[in-house]
Design a binder for these strands. Structure first.
Lengths: 223, 223
DNA sequence: ACTACGGTTGAATCCTGAA
DNA sequence: GTTCAGGATTCAACCGTAG
C-alpha cells in the first residue's frame, strides 16, 4: 500500500515495473537552469552536471513506469517553464498548464514586478485518461497551508483534488520527489496506494513520520 | 497623437525612431493556426498564424524602438509559451508571466482536459521601469466583454489597466498588431499617444472607426 | 485500384456568468 | 431561480494527392 524508498529517484525508478503506475504527482526541484545558484540550496540534492539531461531522463522514466491512459502532474514555476515544457513534450502530450492560485503572494522585486501569486502544474498524459467529476477550469484555488516541514510544501488539499481527478481508489500514485511526504498523506486520505522516493535522509524521516501519522489518524477515525 | 499605419509591422517598425516608445502592448498571433469554428464562422482566419518565424525579429525591433526603462507587454497562450519566452528573453528581461483570468472558459477536449480560462501576458523590460500604484498580483481578473469585431478581442479595461500601470499621460504606446484597435481605444481613454499598425485592410478600417468614435465620445463628455 | 497520409471542415461538448 | 449564449478547441469525418 505505502512504499517509501530512500535514494536517487533516477536509480530507483529503473526498478519500478513498466506500465505499473496510475499517476505521477510530484513537486520536483524548480532550479533547473544554468544560471541558477541551485548548488547553494541545501534542499536540492540532485547531483548532475547537465540539468537538462537530468530532467529529460526523469521524464523518460516517468513515461516508462506509467500505465497507458494515465497522467503526469508536475509542479513548476514560470522561470523554467520552457525547459519543463520541452522535456515533457518529448515523451507526453501536454493537456494543460494548470495555474495553482495561492492565497498569498511572494516577495521579489517590490516596485518593478507584479507580486507572484501562482505556480504552474504541468498536466501531461500517456494515452487518454479522463478527468473524473465535473469539468473544472485550469485555474485552481488552494490555500497554502501553514506547516513548514519543507520550503516548497504543497497543500494536501490540492494534491487530494488532483488525485481524485485522475485516479480511482486503490490505484497507485508515485512521487519521485517526495520531500516531506504531502503526496503520501494525500494518498492515505484518498485510499490510494503510494510509492514515494526521497534522497535526503532528514526529509525521508519526516515523510515517514507524517505518513504514519496520517494512517493512524485514519484508523482512529474509523474506530 | 494617434497614428494608424497600414502594413506589415516588421517593415513599419524599421521607420520608427529608436528609443521613442514608452510601452509596447500587443496581442500578436499565437502561432496556433487559430480559426474560430464556433457556430457560424463570423471571422476570418488569422493570417499567417501557423508559424512563429517572425517572432524573434519582431522582438528585436521592439527592443530597438523602446526607450530605456520601458516595457513590452505581449499576449500569448500556453501552447507556445516556450517560443515566446525564448525570443523575448533574448532581448529583454522578463519580470512576470502574467495570468489574464477570463470570466468564461473555452471549449476543447471536454473530458480529458481542464477548461481553459486564462491567457498569458509576458511582461518584459528594457532597463528598469517602475509599476505605478499599489502592488498588484500577477493574476489579473478582467471580463471578456461583448463586441465581436475581432475573434480574439481583448477587453479595453484590461488594456487601460496595463497602460496605467506602466506609463504616464502623454506617453506613447505602440501596438504593432492592432487588430480591431482596442489598444488605441484604451489610449484615447487614458490620454496616451498611440501608434497602431495593422496588415489587414478590413481590421484597419474597423480600428480607424472605433478609435475615431472613442475620440468623439471623449469630446462629447467634455462638452 | 488501394491504402496511407496530410490538410481542412464543421459538429459537438459543458460549465460559467450574464441577462 | 432559470434560461441562454459563448468560448485563442478537439475530434472524427472527409477529401485530395502520392506512393
Amino acid at each position: 500500500m505505502i512504499d517509501l524508498q530512500k535514494g536517487d529517484c533516477l536509480e530507483l525508478m529503473k526498478k519500478i515495473p513498466s506500465n505499473s503506475i496510475d499517476l505521477i504527482l510530484t513537486d520536483s526541484p524548480y532550479g533547473i537552469n544554468f544560471q541558477s545558484n541551485y548548488r547553494k540550496n541545501k534542499h536540492l540534492k540532485i547531483q548532475n552536471d547537465s540539468n537538462l539531461d537530468w530532467l529529460d531522463h526523469f521524464v523518460f522514466e516517468c513515461n516508462k513506469v506509467l500505465k497507458n491512459d494515465s497522467a503526469l502532474m508536475m509542479f513548476s514555476s514560470w522561470h523554467h517553464v520552457d525547459y519543463f515544457k520541452a522535456s515533457i513534450e518529448k515523451y507526453f502530450k501536454i493537456k494543460n498548464i494548470l495555474i495553482w492560485e495561492k492565497n498569498n503572494t511572494g516577495m521579489g522585486d517590490l516596485k518593478g514586478q507584479f507580486a507572484p501569486k501562482y505556480e504552474f502544474i504541468f498536466f501531461a498524459v500517456k494515452g487518454k485518461p479522463l478527468l473524473k467529476g465535473k469539468r473544472d477550469s485550469d485555474i485552481l484555488n488552494f490555500k497554502k497551508t501553514g506547516n513548514k516541514l519543507h520550503p516548497t510544501q504543497k497543500p494536501v488539499d490540492l494534491l487530494k483534488y488532483l488525485i481524485n481527478k485522475l485516479t480511482d481508489e486503490s490505484n497507485t500514485v508515485l512521487d519521485p520527489f517526495m520531500g516531506s511526504g504531502s503526496t503520501g498523506v494525500a494518498c492515505v486520505n484518498t485510499n490510494r496506494d503510494f510509492i514515494g522516493m526521497e534522497l535526503d535522509d532528514e526529509y525521508f524521516k519526516i515523510a515517514q513520520k507524517r505518513i504514519r501519522e496520517a494512517k493512524d489518524e485514519k484508523v482512529t477515525k474509523l474506530v
